[in-house]
Every structure is written in C-alpha cells, then in structure tokens.
Nucleic acid binder design. Structure first.
Length: 347
RNA sequence: UGGGGUGUCGCCAAGUGGUAAGGCACCGGAUUUUGGUUCCGGCAUUCGGGGGUUCGAAUCCCUCCACCCCAG
C-alpha cells in the first residue's frame, strides 16, 4: 500500500512532538487525520486542567496542516483503566506508573481500535521510539527515548503504528516545528501524569484516597522522628517532603502499610534500597520471550542508565545493584537497540 | 541542694576579640510524558536574657534563666 492510500490517525496532544509528527506524515504523503484523545478534563486543586487548551492547540495545528481532525472521548475508560489502577496501587503501598498503563490500555489499544473502526489503517504518535516489523526500537535520540513507557504495547499494535520522530533528536524536532510555523513549536515540554498535567501526585491522590497521619520512623534508631500525612504519598528513595532534618538527608527506605509507618534512614548505603535481584510480575514480551540466561540490558526507571542483567524465570539478576527499585514501578528489558518487554517490580 | 556540662536559623553544627561556615529541612527554579532522584538559587543585622570590659564580643567578666549529667 502506498502512503497516499494509507490512512493514518495521529494522536495529537497539543504539544510540539505530536504536532510535528502530524506534519511529517502529511509531507510523506499519508492520508492523515489528527485525533485528540480526551482522557481527562477535571480540574484539580491548585490546577486547572489544560485539556481545553491542549485541544485548541491540537485543532489549530490540524487546521494549519489542512488535515481532518477528530476528538475521541476516552474519559470513562481512562478513569477505569488508568486512574483506578493508579489509586489501587498507591492504596496498597506500591508506586505505579500510570503512563505505562495509559499506553497499554488507552493509546495503543483503545485508540488503535477506535481508529481502525473509523477507517484508519494505522495510528501514529509523537513518541520518541522506532518500530521495525512490529519490533520496538530505541529512539535515535538517546536522551529522549521513550520506549520505557511503551514496553507493554503489543506486537500487533506496533505493527500498525508509526513513530515519525524516532529518527530525530529533540532540538531538530523543535527546529522543524519552527520552520513549519507550527503554533505549538514553542510549547513547553509536558510533564507530570500524561493528560492530567502538572499536578502533584499528592494533590491528585488526596482527591480519591482517605489518608491517616502516621509516624516517620528512623530505621536505625527505631525512633519516631516525625509525622507523615499518609504513607501512600511516600515512595522508596524519596528524600523531600518528609519534613525531618538534621545532619544528613533522610531517605525513605521502606513502608509498613498495615502499621502506617514510613521508615527513613540517613544511611545512603541502606541495604533495603539497593538491590541486585528483582522479582518481576506481569511480565510482558513484545515478541517471543527471549531465552533464559540471555544477556539483557535493563532500565529500572525512565532515563536511568542501562544495566546488564539476566532474567531467570521471574527473577532478574542485575550486574550492578540499583538504587530504589520500587514495587509497582517497571523494569524494561532491552536487547541491543530493541526493547523486548519488561515487568513490574513485585513485593 | 552540692559538683560538672550545655544553651548559635525549625533540626544538626562550625566559630575562643575583628565584625555569624557548612549540612538537613523548608521555599523557588532547572532537568524529567510516572513516583522518585539529581542540579541551581534563596534562607540568622544575629548568637538563652540582662548588664559590663573594649575602637570592636557569639567569643572576656558579672548576673539571671533553661536544659542535661553525676552525686545525695
């Protein structure tokens, strides 16, 4: 199928990346339709939800490019699949990654399905990643690579996906957006939970979860040295927001949800935040599962350096111990440039 | 009640006559499509109170107050 005959629905968030993606696809001759996914529109304390603005920006770019434009309303599903998951995880003391869930459930599933139903042949997004025959590859721009957030996408979805920015570096993207006069060219990098915007996780969770104050206990002395306003707000390795000080910085080294205690330590070497063995759950492979014992490289968090590791069954053995490997967070596995899958840190 | 010790930013903590280091916390910013991390900047006209000595004191003297420890 030639590109002219290929109908591509591009997810347009109103940011520079997806704007340029749409522009590039159009230039490449695809039959492009821009789609704004409305996943969240609620205002939150201290922050107005930017959805209306984002939608306006996306629409503006679509008009500018002369492409069709649609809005898909996924609020209900986003709430059920992403927000609820996030709340559930936090409630039991874990630290989830909602954006990975968003990609798995919404962008590369619901959006893809809906696009296909609406006549699309493929979808595209502004992610920095590359696809080759249903395989997910790291972006050319190592600094912006977003495959970490995409490891739970299926091979089928990837085979119908285009990532127009995968071969570009961020500064080039910005420049190309400017050259094309895209109105979103100068827009700031979006941060925070995808679609929800710049809200503190704390404020967000407070809306949905009842929390009870409890003790912050120094693991070394076993003494309560402060109070927290809800253990769910704290995560392994965290330093700020504890309101306890004196001497060296305190880091969160553990939580006891049943007793509502947050454990902290001034010992940076504390064994409970340095790990070499990690047990994974909900492992997902994009293609076939690689053979046991194969040398992989893993990423413990977005933008973390890759570490060599081997996976045996569900146990990952890292070559170097990693700091703050946190239950609920994802470990993503790479084989060379290929992102082969990953799993979620258990316990 | 005797004897000893201590009292510097919310917390740790330098500073013993020359005009208040540093760290933590906190606040602001940068970085980052999760949480978190990291980075940069801000943060005591004032040293428990009151007197005094001195050109000049957190630093010396007097006195009061508070807390701690050891004796009883």
């Amino acid at each position: 199928m030639t590109s002219a005959a290929t109908k591509v629905f591009v997810g347009m968030s109103g940011g520079v990346d997806s704007s340029l993606s749409a522009a590039l696809l159009k230039e490449q001759g695809y039959d492009v339709t821009g789609v704004y996914m409305k996943n969240w529109s609620q205002d939150l304390p201290g922050m107005k939800c930017p959805w209306a603005e984002d939608l306006a920006d996306a629409k503006r770019v679509a008009v500018q490019l002369g492409i069709d434009f649609k809005v898909f309303d996924f609020e209900q599903e986003y709430r059920d699949k992403v927000v609820q998951y996030m709340i559930d995880e936090y409630t039991i003391g874990r630290t989830p990654n909602p954006d990975i869930m968003c990609n798995q459930e919404v962008k590369f599933k619901l959006f893809l399905e809906t696009a296909l139903e609406n006549g699309a042949d493929m979808i595209a997004t502004g992610h920095y990643a590359r696809v080759d025959n249903g395989r997910l590859l790291k972006a050319k721009d190592d600094n912006k690579d977003q495959t970490y957030f995409l490891y739970r996408v299926t091979e089928e979805a990837l085979s119908k996906t285009l990532f127009p920015l995968g071969d570009f570096r961020k500064p080039e993207v910005r420049q190309m957006a400017e050259e094309r006069g895209l109105t979103t060219a100068g827009k700031k990098e979006s941060m925070g939970i995808c679609f929800v915007g710049q809200v503190g996780i704390r404020d967000f969770l407070s809306q949905y979860v009842e929390t009870v104050p409890g003790d912050i206990v120094d693991k070394q002395s076993q003494k309560a040295i402060g109070q927290h306003d809800g253990a769910i707000f704290y995560t392994l390795g965290q330093r700020h927001g504890l309101n306890v000080g004196g001497g060296l910085p305190y880091y969160v080294v553990g939580k006891d949800m049943s007793r509502n205690i947050v454990y902290v330590s001034q010992n940076i070497e504390d064994e409970s935040i340095w790990r070499r063995k990690v047990t994974l759950q909900n492992i997902h492979w994009i293609g076939e599962k690689p053979k046991d014992d194969i040398q992989l490289q893993v990423r413990i968090r977005h933008r973390a350096p890759l570490v060599a590791a081997k996976l045996q069954d569900r146990t990952l053995e890292l070559q170097e111990s990693q700091r703050a490997v946190t239950p609920g967070q994802s470990v993503v596995l790479y084989h060379g440039d290929e992102c082969v899958g990953g799993g979620i840190v258990a316990e």
